[in-house]
Nucleic acid binder design. Structure first.
Lengths: 129, 129
DNA sequence: CAGGATCCAATCGGATACTG
DNA sequence: CAGTATCCGATTGGATCCTG
């Protein structure tokens, strides 16, 4: 074997509600968690944490996303009350997306996580094979 | 339209490295992010944040997970150096899983996120239709 | 108990074409 | 510009059976 990191003896207590059995399958929190941790959901929320943006801008920033997935992701996040959509009836059309207060609160938790992934990525990948 | 929450005028600056274009497709950080935000990855990391646990225990706690997914998820997390596996050559076999230091660091960011999802879930779902 | 192997259904998700 | 609609291949993931 190689450089297998030894496990620490720590064991942090979880926030009260999560303490036992993680949380039940099929319960709303699972669904919400899936939405906000989805591949593109994270990236969209992250991009929007920098402020209001248009469809085309989001498409560029969430590099690699298809129109289908962008539409679907935005719709889900909007239904969840995390993203707000403002369309203007002009030609050409203009639609701006931004975070709601709730979405902004969430992004405060998401940003550090993404930053961590970014900072640790090279290190993690280099240990593969 | 209904109770569409108005968007706040806030715009938080992102940690330096993420500032523009989110981060490129195909780069390691995307992969790592996918691992740690995967449906079951989150739940396993969360469960392990409470301390070392056995296969069967993890199966129960990550309610709804199949053996296949448990094995696959654990293997991925182990390869990423987030989870440590310790097998004892006894009969019946006993295998304990725990977080590495790196994994523990990560769980510190993950727990608040999951807690948030848990706390906001009912509120979010009730606004659907 | 802790998995590995296989089969197959369901979903995901990209490419393309079209519209207001 | 900002989407919607459709097709269809690729991937996911569960159920089941098997093993050390």
């Amino acid at each position: 074997m190689e450089v297998s990191t030894a496990a620490p003896a720590h064991a942090a207590p979880l926030p009260v509600a999560l303490a036992d059995g993680v949380f039940p399958a099929g319960c709303p929190s699972r669904t919400v968690l899936d939405h906000i941790t989805s591949k593109w959901g994270v990236l969209i929320l992250l991009a929007l944490s920098e402020g209001e943006q248009r469809w085309s801008e989001l498409r560029r920033r969430a590099e690699g996303i298809s129109e289908k997935m962008l539409a679907q992701t935005l719709k889900t996040l909007e239904r969840d009350g995390l993203v707000s959509r403002k369309a203007q009836a002009v030609i050409p059309p203009r639609v701006d997306y931004s975070l709601t207060d709730r979405g902004y609160e969430l992004s405060g938790l998401l940003v550090p996580l993404v930053a961590w992934a970014f900072d640790n990525a090279d290190d993690i990948v280099s240990g593969q094979r």
